[in-house]
Design a protein around this nucleic acid. Structure first.
Length: 243
DNA sequence: GTAGGGTTAG
């Protein structure tokens, strides 16, 4: 029963609403996707050849919308150009880099970059580790994602936050380990300063419904409502399907 | 406001 589910659910792509990116230029907001990309590339080129070049923050800001538009290979080529030019990067740049490889399902390159980060003397941060965990989830390597998550806690490499718990809960649900996801949700409430949010509850409710455990799903729905976390159209759609 | 996550079905 559980075998047929994960693959189907992994096919679901990630959503980005049209306004879901930050830009450095209003040009990038006003135009269509293709024009936005062209404008960003042109701006990048101008910046790269400026003497002296702008600071790395400006480069990070221009690459981010390109990543949000899912032009990962393009973003990677820009990042490589920055490296070739010798402009000093930051941990933000490296995290964008890692995320691009993760999105292209090339997690091994992402981990190679982690080694580079250490060599460059940028300590990895929560976003670095979360990106890697998410990369493993995207590559259908959820077991390894969980192992990394556990190792981070065990070795006190970082203190997981709500984003990281959300990533792991999503991964667990994707492969049908709904009870583990629920356990983690309970652990968050009792053992951490993070609180499960609307999306986390909805993710687990949907997973319970797909497991045909609608009573449990309804219990969780009541729980979230009592906590003042509102269900949304997605939560209700999952419940209706389950029922 | 420099980077990282996520839920439905049609």
């Amino acid at each position: 029963m559980m075998c047929s589910r994960p693959n189907l659910r992994l096919l679901i792509s990630h959503r980005h609403s049209p306004g879901d990116y930050s830009t450095t230029s209003t040009r990038l907001v006003a135009n269509s996707g293709a024009h936005k990309l062209d404008d960003a590339l042109q701006l990048f080129d101008e910046m790269l050849h400026k003497k002296p070049p702008p600071c790395i923050i400006k480069f990070n800001k221009i690459i981010t919308p390109i990543v949000k538009l899912k032009h990962y290979s393009t973003a990677l080529s820009l990042l490589k150009q920055i490296n070739l030019t010798g402009i000093p990067t930051s941990i933000y740049t490296m995290n964008i880099f890692i995320n691009c490889y993760c999105r292209l399902k090339q997690v091994n390159y992402s981990f190679a970059l982690l080694a580079t980060i250490f060599k460059l003397g940028h300590p990895p941060d929560l976003a670095t580790y979360n990106t890697l965990i998410n990369g493993l989830v995207l590559a259908n390597r959820v077991f390894e994602a969980i192992e990394l998550f556990k190792k981070l806690i065990r070795d006190k490499l970082c203190e997981p936050n709500q984003v990281m718990y959300g990533t792991v809960i999503n991964g667990l649900c994707k492969v049908g380990h709904t009870s583990k996801a629920l356990e983690l949700c309970r652990f968050m409430k009792k053992g951490t300063s993070c609180e499960p949010n609307q999306v986390m509850y909805s993710t687990i409710i949907d997973s319970l419904c797909k497991d045909r455990m609608v009573d449990d799903a309804l219990r969780l729905f009541n729980e979230m409502t009592q906590k003042g976390i509102h269900a949304n159209v997605i939560t209700y759609t999952s419940l209706i399907h389950g029922l």
